[in-house]
Amino acid sequence: MGLVAEYQIDCDALPLTEVATTVPEATLTLDIQFNHGDRPPFLVTIQNGFQSTIETAFTDAFDVGAWTLVGQAGDTFRYQVRSALSFEEQLGDHINDLAGLEALATADAIIERIEVLPSGWRQTGWFANRDTFNEFSSFWQQNADFQLLRLTHDDESKPAGDGLTDRQREALRIAYKRGYFEIPRQASLEDIAAELEISASSVSERLRRAQTELIEETVAPTWPPLPQ
């Protein structure tokens, strides 16, 4: 029986973390297009960001060589991004076992989702068995800060909205009550931050993560493919 795991890798040397830092209000997810040499291009999907800000962040990022907008649907943008660096140039000073990283690409696993964070990557993957997952987790525990968020068997369903933490749910409720989601907005991030007694940037990240969880469980399964 296979496993489904969600985990976070805190390593700010991973590709596109600089872009995620520059546009913290946006949600960045990527697919790696392997079999393109040592600089595989990324297919990057971005939600909740301003197009001009996103594209300026790509242009300014040290690890982005070129980017192309390949599709748009509402506030969702999809880009092909070519790296300016090889994996060795990008990660060589931070990860000792680059050969082990390359070997993970051929393991019996499918990385279904990669979300880029300012601190690293948050991934969801399907693993053929416990040994395969242990190979992944052991590698990242040895080479970065690794945090397991969820681990289930692949036949265990996850109820809609189950991924929300209590803090995320609280932030959503307060934001809704204060009118943050109304048009025009009746409250700012600073207003919500004052009530929660945290920083505005923390509120932004908490709301973004909560919205991502809800989208994954409700909208994403029926979202039409973006134009190519």
Rank of each mutant, 00 (worst) to 15 (best):
M1P: 05
M1T: 12
C11Y: 03
D12N: 04
A13I: 06
A13H: 11
P15V: 13
L16F: 04
E18F: 04
V19H: 00
V23S: 00
A26G: 09
A26V: 09
A26I: 14
T27G: 04
L28P: 01
P41S: 06
V44S: 01
V44T: 01
T45P: 05
I46T: 07
Q47D: 13
N48V: 03
F50D: 06
E55S: 04
A57M: 10
F58L: 10
T59D: 12
D60W: 10
F62P: 03
D63G: 02
D63C: 03
G65S: 11
T68I: 08
L69Y: 11
Q72Y: 12
D75Q: 07
F87N: 07
E89P: 02
L91Y: 01
D93Y: 10
D97N: 15
L104M: 10
A105H: 13
A107G: 06
A107N: 09
I111M: 13
L117A: 01
L117W: 05
P118W: 06
G120M: 01
G120E: 00
T124A: 00
G125M: 05
W126F: 06
F127R: 13
R130H: 15
D131R: 09
T132S: 11
T132C: 14
N134C: 10
S137A: 15
S138H: 14
Q142I: 13
Q142K: 10
Q142P: 05
L148A: 14
R150S: 08
H153Y: 03
D155S: 03
E156A: 06
D166V: 03
R169Y: 11
A171N: 05
A171E: 09
A171R: 08
L172A: 01
I174K: 05
G179W: 09
F181E: 13
I183H: 10
I183Q: 12
P184S: 01
Q186R: 13
Q186A: 08
A187Q: 08
S188I: 11
L189C: 14
E195V: 07
E197C: 06
I198F: 04
A200R: 06
S202A: 15
R208T: 01
Q211G: 09
Q211T: 11
E213P: 00
E216I: 04
P225A: 15
